[in-house]
Amino acid sequence: MSNTSHATRPTLFVTGAAAGIGRAVAEHFLRAGWFVGLYDVDEAGLQTLQQAWGAEQCITARLDVTSVNDWVMALAAFEQRTAGRLDVLFNNAGVAVTGPFEEAQLVRHHRLIDINLKGLVSGCHLAFPLLKRTPGSRVINMCSASALYGQPELGSYSATKAAVRSLTEALDIEWRRHCIRVVDVLPLFVNTAMVTDEVSRMKTVSTLGVRLGPQDVADAVWRLANTPPSRLAVHNLVGWQTKLFATLSKLSPGFMNRLVTARMAGY
């Protein structure tokens, strides 16, 4: 298929696309006829997706979001396939470190920051030229309910998500002059491998349960991708628990938010 054949098709670029939320989002858009760029460090997972959907529907490549060179090459190949069109950048790639802060190796905290925050900053910065050239484009950042109040035993993860929340706010203001909207999604615990293998050891998970699946987030991302820019909210809460906690955090005094957070975490 020629490059120009994609010029009239909406396009999506997804990081962390091989599994979990990223995969659910990618397949939701693929079913709707979008051309999707699928990027992850899990090359086997990407190959499975490309075999299922075909090269006419998607492009795949290994992308370590901490590597600027990986970003540059992935975006260049995507631009070539889409005739320079990028409607939605979904910054989804992320990892978690759980447990007492001081017990996790420092290198793990640093790696988390590199992936969750610096990788997202790189994506926004390097994708900007494509977004600027695409009318009505938008960035959707994967945030978290942990950005509402720092979570014990999830401190560095919460910190990166709070930073993502702030960056989203700032860029949405800055980039409106370029007709680019920047928004985020904030779910609570989602039934993914990251939660099952890492986050589920937290007492907060057993207290609240895991009540969201990847498709719940995919549905939210789909709505944000198709809502008129003027009607988009910057922060988008996913699930009734997240909405309840967000409301309570606004209404309750700071000491109460701290107390509730500590009790749920067993402190």
Results as ranks from 00 to 15, higher is better:
Ala246Arg: 04
Arg177Trp: 10
Lys203Glu: 10
Ala32Ile: 08
Lys243Phe: 01
Ala7Arg: 13
Ala24Lys: 03
Ser158Met: 11
Ser5Gly: 12
Ala44Asn: 14
Ile59Leu: 15
Val41Trp: 00
Asp40Ile: 03
Arg111Cys: 07
Gln57Asp: 05
Leu120Asp: 04
Ala96His: 15
Gly150Lys: 11
Gly37Met: 02
Ala74Asp: 02
Arg138Tyr: 05
Leu188Thr: 13
Asp87Glu: 04
Ala17Gly: 05
Phe189Met: 10
Val72Met: 09
Ala77Met: 12
Gln105Trp: 06
Ala246Thr: 00
Glu27Trp: 01
Glu103Tyr: 12
Val41Phe: 01
Ser166Lys: 07
Phe78Tyr: 09
Val72Gly: 02
Tyr39Val: 13
Met142Asp: 07
Thr98Cys: 14
Gln47Ile: 12
Asp40Cys: 11
Gly45Lys: 08
Arg31Leu: 13
Pro214Ala: 07
Leu188Asn: 14
Leu186Asp: 12
Ala193Gln: 12
Ala147Gly: 07
Thr11Ile: 06
Phe90Val: 06
Gly266Trp: 06
Val183Arg: 06
His110Ile: 08
Leu38Tyr: 02
Gly54Trp: 00
Asn3Trp: 15
His235Thr: 04
Thr196Arg: 09
Leu251Ala: 08
Ala77Ser: 14
Arg181Ser: 07
Phe245Asn: 00
Leu154Ile: 06
Gly20Pro: 09
Ala32His: 12
Ala61Thr: 06
Ala52Phe: 07
Asp40Arg: 13
Ala104Phe: 01
Val139His: 02
Tyr39Lys: 11
Ser2Arg: 15
Thr204His: 10
Ala233Arg: 13
Ala19Val: 07
Gly136Arg: 05
Ser2Ile: 15
Asn116Gly: 08
Pro214Cys: 08
Arg111His: 07
Pro10Thr: 07
His178Asn: 15
Leu130Lys: 03
Thr160Ala: 02
His6Trp: 01
Gln105Glu: 14
Gly99Arg: 06
Gly209Thr: 08
Leu171Met: 11
Val14Ser: 01
Thr8Cys: 10
Ala233Ile: 05
Thr134Lys: 09
Met256His: 08
Trp222Gln: 04
Lys250Phe: 13
Asp184Gln: 08
Arg181Pro: 10
Met202Ile: 09
Asp70Tyr: 05
Gln215Asp: 15
Ala265Met: 12
Ala44Glu: 14
Gly119Trp: 02
Asn141Thr: 01
Gly54Gln: 02
Val121Tyr: 06
Arg263Ser: 11
Arg133Ile: 04
Thr196Val: 08
Arg133Val: 03
His125Ser: 11
Tyr39Asn: 13
Ile173Arg: 15
Thr227His: 02
Ser146Asn: 12
Ser137Leu: 00
Glu102Ala: 14
Pro214Trp: 05
Ala220Ile: 00
Met194Pro: 01
Gly20Leu: 14
Met194Asp: 00
Leu89Ile: 00
His28Ser: 14
Tyr149His: 15
Ala233Lys: 13
Thr8Leu: 14
Ala77Pro: 10
Arg133Asp: 05
Asn3Gly: 15
Arg223His: 05
Ala44Cys: 11
Val182Ala: 03
Glu102Ser: 13
Phe101Tyr: 12
His110Phe: 00
Arg201Leu: 11
Gly33Asn: 02
Trp175Tyr: 15
Leu232Pro: 00
Arg31Trp: 13
